[in-house]
Structure formats: structure tokens, C-alpha cells
């Protein structure tokens, strides 16, 4: 009987904690969407690689197109996961998640324009990876636990990309946008409902 009472109290405390976590976290992160984004990024890496030497502007255009495709896949799969799970996109947790996520990405877009106007594209892989990582580290505070870890991995690739030529930076983009999205996409899909 005392064990049953203790178990009941432990269950109640766990229930409270889980409810609080669910109420304060934005959970509609699309694992399968991330997986598909990873595949498209790997494809982009392969076709962009030769352009690093003979036409960096075209290399930039290919990656910007990939960003648009990835945003479409991510947005669509996030919306579908949210609708399926009945998770609203208007909670304060969702708002905090999106503000924290988009602020570094907007900074990245502005820096991209400034860097390209300066006549170079070489720093872009590092800038993109670092700020994309920051977006996940900061927004991860309002989401599932694996998101900040993914952000840190992107930042590590970004730090490495800061000290290499564009051709290697392109490969690091592929390893991170491709490999990390595939790995973490599968983790999220398996453990967080798709």
C-alpha cells in the first residue's frame, strides 16, 4: 500500500511535468521533412561542387534555390505535422520558437547580401552554418530537447567552414545541411511523432 501511494504521487508529479513541457514547448518539428531536406541538400552539394571553381555566383544561385526548396518542404511538413497532432501555431511557445528561429536567419540573409556586394562568396558557408545553428540553439529552448544539440552540430561545421576554401566549404555545407538533417530528421521522426 505505501508503495502504491508513492507510485501514485510519482505518477502525478510526472503527469504535471509532462503537461508543463507540452504546454511550454513547440513540438511540431518535422522529422521526415528534415530527412527529405537532407537528401535535397546532398544533391545540391554534388551539382554545386564544380561551380565553386569556375562560377561562384552560379554556386550561390544553386544554394539559394536549395534554401527556397528546403523552406517549402520544411514549412509544408511542419504544417502537416501540426495539423495531424492538433498542435496550434499560435501558442506563446510557438511564437517564441519562431521569433528565436527566424531572427538569426534574417541576420544571415542580410549578411549574405552584404558579403556578396563586397565581391566574394567564400565566407558564406560559414555564415550560413553558424547562423542556422544559432537559430536551432536559441529556438530549441522552446522546443524538443534534440533541437539545441542539432544547432550545436551545425555551429561546429560552421566554425570549421570559416577556415577553409570555398570548395571545402561547399562539402561542409553538404555534410551539415545534408548529413545532419538526415540524422536528426530520423531521430525526430522516430522519437517525436514523425
Amino acid at each position: 500500500m505505501p508503495d502504491a501511494l508513492r507510485d501514485h504521487a510519482v505518477d502525478n508529479l510526472r503527469y504535471i511535468r509532462e503537461t508543463m513541457e507540452r504546454a511550454s514547448a513547440f513540438t511540431s518539428i518535422p522529422g521526415w521533412g528534415g530527412f527529405v531536406i537532407g537528401l535535397t541538400a546532398l544533391f545540391t552539394t554534388v551539382i554545386a561542387e564544380p561551380m565553386t571553381a569556375w562560377n561562384p555566383r552560379r554556386w550561390l544561385a544553386v544554394w539559394l534555390l536549395e534554401a527556397a526548396v528546403a523552406a517549402a518542404i520544411g514549412g509544408l511538413t511542419m504544417w502537416r505535422k501540426g495539423v495531424r497532432a492538433g498542435t496550434p501555431f499560435t501558442t506563446s511557445a510557438a511564437r517564441r520558437f519562431f521569433i528565436s528561429y527566424f531572427a538569426p536567419l534574417i541576420a544571415g540573409a542580410i549578411l549574405t547580401v552584404a558579403i556578396v556586394r563586397g565581391g566574394t562568396v567564400a565566407p558564406l558557408p560559414s555564415v550560413w552554418l553558424l547562423l542556422y545553428g544559432v537559430a536551432f540553439v536559441s529556438s530549441g529552448a522552446f522546443s524538443i530537447r534534440v533541437i539545441p544539440a542539432m544547432g550545436v552540430c551545425f555551429m561546429l561545421f560552421g566554425a570549421a567552414a570559416a577556415f577553409v576554401p570555398l570548395a571545402v566549404g561547399n562539402l561542409l555545407l553538404g555534410a551539415a545541411f545534408g548529413g545532419l538533417h538526415i540524422i536528426f530528421g530520423l531521430i525526430i521522426a522516430r522519437n517525436y511523432g514523425g
Binding site: 503537461t19 504546454a23 511557445a93
Partner: peptide
């Protein structure tokens, strides 16, 4: 209990 818990963090 769930309502009160959810509102405690929002």
C-alpha cells in the same frame, strides 16, 4: 490538474 499545470507555464 493539466489545465492548472499548463497555465502555470503560460
Amino acid at each position: 490538474l493539466a489545465i492548472v499545470s499548463a497555465l502555470a507555464v503560460n
